[in-house]
Design a protein around this nucleic acid. Structure first.
Lengths: 197, 197
DNA sequence: GCATTAGTGGAGTGTGCGCTCTAATAATTG
DNA sequence: CAATTATTAGAGCGCACACTCCACTAATGC
């Protein structure tokens, strides 16, 4: 009997579909995207599509899951740092870099548009949590070191930093003259002003 | 022959439908909202619905148009002020107040989810324009008065102020512990820090 | 009163799309 | 080679839902 031919090939195919979906979702929104369009973009038939993902929604969730994993991997990147404020600002900088992928803003809007689906809401919650776990310890450390203001709790500061990066993302999505690379420096400077004691 | 019975009644009915739609859109997203659900919420039949609005999309656009008109009316409110920075911060404050309507964040996400429709994109452009025309003159005045920083152009400062209010709105939508009223003061304070020379 | 038309409801229709089903092919094992 | 199963494509099904249609009522003008 023949079993899984090549797990790597399977995974690669999965990623091709995910990448295609990311593109189309960003362009047309979630409901505006037909599974047929994803198949066309990925160069596959609908049979193949549903062989890899049971539903269109599961595909969206798979994309979100991938994002969460990326955030979790990022933790290791800062493990040996000692300059807490520097790490916080680097994470903010990373947010600006993420916004540079031209598909990102559209995709974020697309996800927002179906946030009322419980599964999507849950995944986004998980994402928020992962991001908070990434940044909060560094905020606390920076506070103890006296590098940043202490009149707000670490949780609120974290929320406000996400407010900045999320707003940044949204602005890039909407505003012609507002580019991720061009405004990155201002983002970091604004975060610095916000954090100042 | 009998002509329009009561224009006011007609307009009122229209507003009832608009209000119902705002509620349902915010809860379920645009595509997740059926015209039947709007009718149920508004207490009307589908015949009545399509008597007032030719399509579901036109209804959404009507809501956006209403918002634009509100922004335009706001201009008069500040006409006789002389403290430019104060006006700018008041406009920011107004943004926080708008976010206090519990339906607002959901509605904004819903609109974002269908931003790929050309008509929606056009209306949002118009909205952005209206808001810029509201705030930009005051930013310029504040710069000339030396009340705020001058290292960024008025356009960029305006964009960044919207980044703050939009991000604020998004945060209220997502974050349990982040309430419009509770964080309003921090929003104004953050705007002040951003604007400081 | 009659004529006319705005306003209203709801049954029904047509379409678009997510997903299923079938059938064929490729890959693997023994 | 045969046997088995993963993989692929695409035709088509069923359903949900935006919108149409028709019948009726209410209001107004004459």
């Amino acid at each position: 009997m023949a079993r899984t031919v090549d797990p790597a090939r399977h995974e690669a195919r999965r990623l091709v579909i995910i990448d295609a979906a990311l593109t189309v979702f960003a362009e047309r929104g979630y409901d505006g995207t037909t599974t047929a369009a994803i198949c066309r973009q990925a160069g596959i038939g609908s049979g193949t599509f549903f062989h890899y993902f049971p539903t269109k929604l599961e595909l969206l969730l798979a994309i979100l899951t991938l994002g969460i994993q990326e955030v979790r991997h990022a933790e290791a990147r800062y493990a040996d740092r000692t300059d807490a404020l520097g790490v916080v600002l680097d994470i903010v900088r990373q947010g600006a870099d993420d916004a540079a992928d031209p598909r990102m803003p559209g995709f974020v809007r697309a996800v927002g548009g179906v946030m009322h689906l419980p599964d999507v809401a849950a995944k986004l919650d998980e994402d928020t949590h992962a991001q908070q776990e990434l940044i909060r310890p560094w905020v606390e450390r920076a506070q103890r070191a006296g590098e940043i203001r202490t009149d707000l709790t670490p949780d609120r500061i974290t929320s406000w930093l996400y407010l900045l990066t999320d707003g940044f993302l949204g602005r890039v999505a909407v505003d012609e003259g507002f580019t991720a690379q061009g405004e990155k420096a201002t983002l970091v400077e604004t975060a610095r002003r916000f954090l100042a004691p």
